[in-house]
């Protein structure tokens, strides 16, 4: 029987980490909402990950590990400290206006990337974060659970609330756009 190579030499950090670079930067920019801060955050993330790589457990999720480092770095940054309360906010039933018409149907008529981007920027940080991890980074519930260090049940409820919040913001924007016409 051939013996699989169980070693994870330091040289492979680059191989594993660089393919995540674009998406980590995108995520960092959404978190910080600032180009310079996003660049600093990504650099800090890679530096920490490289230092901690020898202790990375083979067989565990490298992507979730990188995102967790990035998120923790963000939370310990000045901007992140302000957001900590928001990111780690207790799950509460959002007081959202009742949906009358579905924003989805309006989006079908009026797909507007900029509007969705604006709306994403306006939803609470913990909602934006989970929407990005799921819809953009295409993480599974399990991966998100590992990244955010929250139970899967919380992932499900938070994601559901995040969608509801985004729909609500979009709905208001679409309604405002119509009134403005």
């Amino acid at each position: 029987m051939e013996v699989p190579d169980q070693r994870l030499p330091a040289a492979t950090f680059e191989d594993l980490a660089m393919p995540l670079f674009d998406q980590l930067y995108n995520f960092a920019h959404w978190l910080t909402q600032d180009t310079a801060e996003a660049e600093d955050l990504v650099q800090e993330t890679y530096a920490k990950a490289l230092r901690g790589f020898p202790s990375f457990q083979l067989g565990t999720n490298f992507r979730a590990w990188m995102y967790r480092i990035l998120r923790n770095s963000f939370l310990s940054s000045r901007t992140g400290l302000k957001a900590t309360v928001i990111l780690d906010a207790e799950e509460q039933e959002d007081a959202l206006p009742k949906e009358t018409t579905t924003p989805e149907s309006l989006l079908l008529e009026q797909a507007n990337r900029e509007m969705v981007q604006q709306a994403l920027g306006e939803v609470p940080a913990h909602h934006r974060e989970i929407l990005l991890l799921f819809e953009v980074e295409e993480m599974s519930y399990q991966e998100i659970s590992e990244t955010l260090v929250i139970p899967i049940g919380t992932v499900m409820s938070r994601l559901s609330r995040a969608r509801k919040a985004l729909r609500s913001v979009l709905q208001q924007k679409l309604a405002g756009g119509r009134h403005g016409m």
């Binding site: 330091a10 040289a11 950090f13 680059e14 980490a17 660089m18 670079f21 674009d22 930067y25 995108n26 920019h29 959404w30 180009t35 996003a38 660049e39 990504v42 650099q43 890679y46 530096a47 490289l50 924003p103 989805e104 989006l107 079908l108 797909a111 990337r113 900029e114 969705v116 981007q117 709306a119 994403l120 929407l131 990005l132 819809e135 953009v136 969608r163 985004l166 729909r167």
Partner: peptide, 29 residues
Amino acid sequence: QFKRSVQIAGRRYAPSAQLRDKIAKDSAP
């Protein structure tokens, strides 16, 4: 459609080539 819209809108920010080069250099063994 909604999920797709979020997916498209979420892919918004691209890093600069300089940052990519720096990170790649720092990450190289």
